[in-house]
Each structure stands twice: as structure tokens, then as C-alpha cells.
Amino acid sequence: MSDVGSINERYETGEGVGDASVGDFWALLKPRVMSLVIFTALVGLVLAPGNLHPVLAVTALMCIAIGAGASGALNMWYDADIDAMMSRTAKRPVPAGRVTPGEALGFGLVLSVGSVLILGLFVDWLAASLLAFTIFFYAVVYTMWLKRSTPQNIVIGGAAGALPPVIAWAAVTGRVDLAPLSLFLLIFLWTPPHFWALAVLKTRDYARAGVPMLPVVAGERSTRWQILIYSALLVPAGVLPAVCGIAGVPYVIVSLVLGLAFVWFAVAIVRAVDQPALAKACGRLFGYSILYLFAMFAMLLVERAAGVSPLPAMIGG
């Protein structure tokens, strides 16, 4: 099956229809992405000033997670044609024929509306509005427009994945401050080098599917340097939570060490002299980038649990 027409033909003939399992619908939610969303949102919830009843806090986290999952389902519905042409995504439920496009669309829409309404009715309407914007931005602006039209797709589209800690902060405080925006910026700048490292490894897949990822459009050399530039920007961005008064000295030290290591992995990509070396360097950066973001946000939680005093806010205080 190579395109969405053959997918629809399978549904019309009844081949494979009815094979969907609970696991297939779970896969539509992109659970690995959802786990990152939950974790970064949790940090925003814990760091936010004020108190939120534990039941409402859990409700907020669940709604943010479900909203993220809804975005994933809508993404898989719309991208079934290009997913079918890529080795990394061909086995997803829709291109594999286990879930129909209509089922994926309905599933995503119901979860989208439900998560936004519950968050607004029971927690906070600003947070709900931000969640609605996040779903719209990922499903419509990124998936339907940016992904197929510009090599900057992942740069601009990364804003959707960076908003969960801001939504969680708003759920507690009813407002958006500079402190959660520092967390937003950290995730926003992390996304391009993280994803481009994978894109370099999957350039042929993206080219075959007609997706204008940076390595396909600008070439491998340009992508290597873009990875290094964004990796370098992570070093000062990683310190911003302390500048905004939500992190202390231990976090600053850890962020600098982890940030410089990120740059070191990026330099290895720039210096790779052949394809095997490049593939190895990109694989290492991709794996490290996941560890990096988890460790950065985990350190914020560790500081709060240990009672470490944040540095005085230099901005946004």
C-alpha cells in the first residue's frame, strides 16, 4: 500500500476493516510523545505559584495529555498518505489499514473537544483556550500546512509541543508569566536539532513522501550547521528558568553541563566525514536529546522537592 487511495480502496472492499484493537487506538495518541507532554506539564504545574486541589491538578494533567493525544490522532488521520510511504510510519494504524481514516478523525475530534471542555469547566478557561490553540496549531497549522510546504515546518510547528508547561502554569495561576515561557523556549529550541538529527537518518523516506524536511530541501551540509546553531542556542536558553526565578544554582550547573554536551554531540555531526560517521553522530544526538530534555525538567522537580531556593528573578519577577 503506497498512498491514501489504496488505503481507501481497502476500506471500500472491506479488507482489513474491523481489525482495530484497543492498542491501535492507543497508538493513535502517540504515547511516547504524550509521556513527554505529561512530564513537562507536570513541571509547569509544580513550579507555578499558588495551590491547585490535587483532583483538579490530576484533571488538568489528564486533559493536557488527552489533548496532546488528540493532536496525534488528527495528525495520523491527515498524514495517512505520506505515512504509508515511509518505513518509520508505514505500520501506524491508519496506513496499515487497522483503523479507518474516519475512525481516526472522529476519535481525534471527540478527544479534542472533550479535553478542552473539561479543562475549562473544571479548572481554568485560559488554560483550556491554550490547549485548544495547541491542538489547532499542531493539527491544522503544522500538519495540514507547514509540514508539506516549508523546510521550517518543525521549527514553527515545534511551538505546539512546547506549550504544555505554559498550559499547566495557567491552570494553576490563571495567567501566563515569563517563567513558563522560559520553559516554552527551552522546548521550542530543543525541537529542531532533536528532529533534524532523525530527519538526516530518514532523508530518503521524506524525499519519497514529498515532505520538504530541511535535509531534503536545503541539503545535508546546511542541516548539519542548523543543528549546531540550535544546539548552541540551548545553552543560554537552558539558564533562563533561573533568570526568571524558578530554578536555583544546582539547576544552572546541570543545565550548562548538559547544554555543552549537546553542543559537543552537534559538533560531531558537523565534523562527520562520511555517511556511516554521520549516521552514528545523528543517532547519538537524537538519543541524547531525549535524555537532555528529561534531565533538564527533572532537575527542576528535584530542586523543588529538595527545597532548593530559586535564584532571585532578574526578569518577570
Results as ranks from 00 to 15, higher is better:
Val263Pro: 04
Ala68Asn: 12
Leu42Arg: 01
Gly238Val: 06
Arg92Phe: 07
Ala127Asp: 02
Leu258Met: 15
Asn8Ala: 15
Leu28Val: 01
Glu303Asp: 07
Leu278Ala: 10
Asp3Glu: 11
Gly157Asp: 06
Leu130Met: 13
Ser309Glu: 14
Thr203Val: 13
Leu198Ser: 08
Leu131Ala: 02
Lys91Val: 09
Val141Gly: 08
Leu240Met: 11
Leu214Pro: 04
Met314Tyr: 12
Leu256Asp: 09
Ala41Met: 04
Ala84Cys: 09
Val116Glu: 00
Pro93Thr: 06
Gly108Leu: 00
Ala266Lys: 07
Thr40Lys: 04
Asp81Asn: 08
Leu126Asp: 03
Leu233Met: 11
Ala65Gly: 09
Gly287His: 10
Gly44Lys: 02
Gly44Asp: 02
Ser129Leu: 13
Ala160Tyr: 03
Leu42Phe: 13
Gly16Ile: 10
His194Gln: 09
Leu52Gln: 01
Ile246Leu: 11
Val217Ile: 15
Leu201Asn: 09
Val123His: 00
Ala272Thr: 12
Ala306Pro: 05
Val243Pro: 04
Ala207Phe: 09
Lys30Val: 03
Ala168Tyr: 06
Ala80Lys: 04
Gln226Asp: 12
Pro95Arg: 01
Pro192Lys: 06
Ala60Cys: 07
Tyr142Trp: 10
Leu293Arg: 00
Ala179Met: 07
Ser149Gly: 11
Arg208Asp: 12
Arg32Ser: 14
Trp264Phe: 15
Trp264Arg: 15
Val46Pro: 02
Lys202Ile: 10
Val267Met: 14
Val110Arg: 03
Leu119Tyr: 01
Gly108Val: 06
Ile187Ala: 04
Ile156Gln: 00
Val267Tyr: 11
Ile154Gln: 06
Ala90Ser: 14
Ala104Glu: 08
Pro250Lys: 07
Trp190Met: 06
Thr191Asp: 04
Thr100Arg: 03
Ile38Thr: 12
Leu278Lys: 05
Phe188Lys: 01
Glu303Ala: 02
Gly23Lys: 10
Leu109Asn: 03
Phe122Leu: 12
Ala242Met: 07
Gly287Met: 07
Trp145Asp: 08
Met314Lys: 12
Ala298Asn: 10
Val94His: 03
Pro312Asn: 08
Trp196Tyr: 08
Ile269Thr: 07
Glu303Lys: 06
Ser6Phe: 10
Ala261Glu: 14
Phe137Asn: 05
Ala277Thr: 10
Pro164Thr: 04
Pro49Thr: 05
Ala232Leu: 14
Pro180Cys: 06
Arg204Gly: 11
Val99Glu: 04
Ile227Thr: 02
Ala209Ile: 05
Ser222Asn: 13
Phe184Met: 02
Val257Cys: 13
Ala27Gln: 14
Gly259Phe: 04
Lys202Ala: 11
Gly307Gln: 05
Gly106Ile: 02
Ala266Arg: 07
Val140His: 10
Lys147Asp: 07
Met76Glu: 07
Tyr292Gly: 03
Phe39Gly: 09
Ala162Cys: 09
Gly158Ala: 00
Arg221Phe: 11
Val249Thr: 15
Ile64Val: 14
Pro241Gly: 05
Asp19Thr: 12
Gly259Ser: 11
Val217Pro: 01
Ala96Phe: 09
Trp77Lys: 08
Phe188His: 05
